[in-house]
Design a protein around this nucleic acid. Sequence first.
DNA 1: ACAGCATTGTAGCCGGTGTCTACATTGAGG
DNA 2: CCTCAATGTAGACACCGGCTACAATGCTGT
Lengths: 200, 200
Amino acid sequence: MAHMPASRPYHHGDLRAALLQSAERTLREKGAGALSLRELARDIGVSHAAPGRHFKDKQALLDALAMEGYERLDRALAEAYGAGPGFEKRMAALAHAYLGFAVEHPELLELMFARKHRPDSSAQLGAAVDRTFGSLTRLFADAQESGEIVDGDPERIALTAAAHLHGLAALIASSALDADEAVAGLDEHVHLLLYGLKPR
Amino acid sequence: MAHMPASRPYHHGDLRAALLQSAERTLREKGAGALSLRELARDIGVSHAAPGRHFKDKQALLDALAMEGYERLDRALAEAYGAGPGFEKRMAALAHAYLGFAVEHPELLELMFARKHRPDSSAQLGAAVDRTFGSLTRLFADAQESGEIVDGDPERIALTAAAHLHGLAALIASSALDADEAVAGLDEHVHLLLYGLKPR
DNA sequence: ACAGCATTGTAGCCGGTGTCTACATTGAGG
DNA sequence: CCTCAATGTAGACACCGGCTACAATGCTGT
């Protein structure tokens, strides 16, 4: 089927994907609060009840969107992790990747870490969070073995770095912090994280 | 009108405060998404349009709630700052105060750092953020003078600490991180922040 | 090939919501 | 005491999410 005829077929083909795509667009442009299932359906050209066949309710759509966000963020972090050998290089790459994601998709980040999820989705999303911070855990486990990082519970150390990055990202996403400024000073931030606030 | 049983006076007296109080309650109990102006009005016993006299729209109410949140957080941080002399003591107290707030009022924290605010409110809220992190800035400025803290742009140093704390708080509020666990390991986190991840 | 059936889309309804406007009641100041 | 701004009310409107009954479609087993 080369082209869609003037009259749409009764079945859309892949409504679910179309909904997610359109939803992501309006999320980016108008924010999560302005997202309406009916408007999505109108834009796509199906009836207002059609989305209900693919998402149990609105929150299910938002959760699916959040999952997509985690996948994207994971890819970005994994790519950064492979940016080359060397702990500090990788650390800097991960930091830039995380903040870059926050700058490019602030609404999505907010959605991913929103506290309102359907109970059944929250398990998947929790796993997604663990996966996301997994790159960090791996990085620090490796660095600890080679003695580049202080001893101690690796989980806690990874959490320290994760909290630091997520804090910056969250402040950017909530526009409490100027994005460009934060990115510009990011290397210095990473340095402070690694070497501490106490003089050496 | 005829039927007013218990003869509530036509004017409520302080509807604005009552709205905020009731809103804060439902925010705590059912979350921000479940907040309805009409329901608030019903609970208080006024007509559905009465809230409109005190808040231009729903977002204005939420913004006012967020402002209250900042005031509370500021008080908690100021109190922690006065927890006694000594940089490290104050730092620990601030950290516990911030995370305590996140544990007790996760929905409020999310609301405070939501990215959807009325344009006119966002200025006030931005100022509130600065005020909130002001305690940190002050703390680090003092510590820097007495040589307890590494040299460098004090704003950036304060932001490092702020990001760290806010990251932990945000992860708690989004229930991506277990609250008790985070609070239990908080002193260790502060230590890592101060002394860095690199071995000394 | 084709009958049966699960999947997907439709139309209509319901209760609820935010916001607007016209009107009613009140209390405070000239 | 009289006016008038502030506050509360009632009704309307458009929209939304979710449900149900129904229609069109396409897959699968025989």
